[in-house]
Amino acid sequence: MTVAVVFDSAGTLLKSYRTARDVVAGKTLSGVETTLLTCMDRSRVLIALHASSRDVIAAPPDEYLSTYLCDRSVGFGISCLRQVIPHERLAEILYSDRRALVGDLQVCIRDVWGTLREESLVVMDSGAILNLSLGGIEFTVTAGGRPFEGAKEAIADLHSMGVATFIASGDRAAKLERIADHLGIPRDQVHGIATPSIKAQIVEDLKRCYGTVVMVGDGINDLQAFRKADISILSEQQSNEKPQELCSAADYIVGNVSEVVPIVRDISGREVVSI
C-alpha cells in the first residue's frame, strides 16, 4: 500500500520562535503563536511578505512599512485566514496602511534573531496580520526556527520504507526549500504559502495518488487538512497547549516527530479506509 506523509513546518518539523508587534497598542508579544492569534478574530488575515530580513533591518525605521513595500515592489502570500478575501482587497489594505512602521517589523526580526542566532541552521520569515475591520496592519510578525532533533532521521526512515514525504505550510517557499534540502525532502514536494483550505486540498489531491495520506501538524491551521487525511497526527513537540477541537480531530498525538515513523510503519501494513 502506498503512503504519503504531509508535514506542516513550524512547530512540526521546526522548533519555532515567533514575535508579534501590536502596532495599535505599541506592544511586543514574544513567543506568540501567530496562527492562533490570527484565528482569534475573524477579521484577521496572516500574510507572509516576500522580503529579506537583512533588507528590512537596513531600511529607515520611521518609514511606513507600506511605503517600504511599495517602493521595493515587495509581494505577499496569504498564510492563514478564516474567510475568503480576494487577494486584491488584501493588497489594497496592506499597501495603503498608515499605522505600521518599518521599525515595528524590525523589532520582531531582532527579537527572533536574538533568540536563534546561535543555532547552526536558522530560517526566518516575516509578515503581518491585517485586520479587515481596522482596514490596516494590526500586527507585524516574524517567525524563525531550526529543525527539531530527530526530524532529519525521521524523514530518512520514512523514505527507507518507501513513504513519500511532503511539506505544506503557510511559510514562504524559499524558507521551506532550505528546510527541505536539509531534511532530504524533494523541492517539488514542498508547498509554500498554503492556507488551511489549500493544505486540505493538497491532502485531497494526494489521496488520488496514494492509498493512505497522513497529515502531521501542530496548529489550528492544520484542522481542515486533519479532517481530509486518512490519518491525522498532532505534534505537541513545540507545545502541548492545543485547542480541544484540534485534539479531537487527531487520530494520534505525539511528543516527538520521530514517533511518526512507527505509526506510519504500522499503518503501512494494513488497509486504511477513509470515511
Rank of each mutant, 00 (worst) to 15 (best):
E236G: 09
A51T: 09
G217D: 05
G77Q: 12
S96K: 12
P60R: 07
V264G: 02
M215R: 04
I93E: 13
D8K: 05
K152V: 08
E241I: 12
P186W: 07
V264Q: 02
R172L: 15
Y17M: 08
M40W: 00
M161L: 15
A25L: 11
Q189S: 14
G211D: 14
I167F: 08
V123K: 02
S274F: 01
V112K: 02
L13K: 03
A168R: 05
V190Y: 05
L101A: 12
L101W: 13
R187F: 10
M161R: 10
I185C: 10
R227W: 00
L49Y: 06
A229L: 13
F166K: 02
D41V: 00
S79R: 01
S248Q: 00
F166L: 11
F148K: 05
R208I: 03
V112L: 06
F76L: 01
E271C: 14
K199A: 07
E118K: 13
G31E: 04
T28L: 14
V261H: 00
I231K: 05
G11Q: 09
D71A: 13
K228E: 15
T19S: 14
R146K: 14
S79K: 03
V203Y: 13
R208H: 09
S66M: 01
D222G: 06
R270T: 05
Y17K: 06
E33R: 14
E271M: 15
L134R: 10
G26A: 04
L206H: 06
S126G: 07
A250Q: 02
V56I: 15
M40R: 10
V56F: 05
I198V: 15
F7W: 03
A200G: 14
A100I: 13
E245S: 08
A143C: 01
D171N: 15
V141L: 12
A156V: 08
G211C: 01
Q244P: 07
K15F: 00
D218G: 07
G269M: 11
S16R: 07
I185H: 12
M215P: 03
V264W: 01
A250G: 05
E271F: 13
S16T: 14
R72L: 12
M1I: 07
A225W: 07
V56H: 06
V213H: 06
G11L: 12
R99P: 04
L105Y: 02
K152R: 12
A143L: 11
K15G: 10
L246I: 06
E138R: 04
A58N: 09
K152T: 13
S120C: 04
A25C: 00
A249T: 01
S169A: 09
V214P: 00
R178Y: 12
G75F: 15
R72K: 11
V254L: 00
Q224D: 12
Q201C: 06
M124E: 13
A250V: 06
G255W: 09
V122D: 04
K199D: 09
G217R: 02
T140C: 14
S133E: 15
L206Y: 08
V123F: 04
G77V: 11
D71L: 15
M1T: 01
L158N: 05
G170F: 10
G11M: 11
A100T: 03
I263G: 05
V3F: 07
L158M: 04
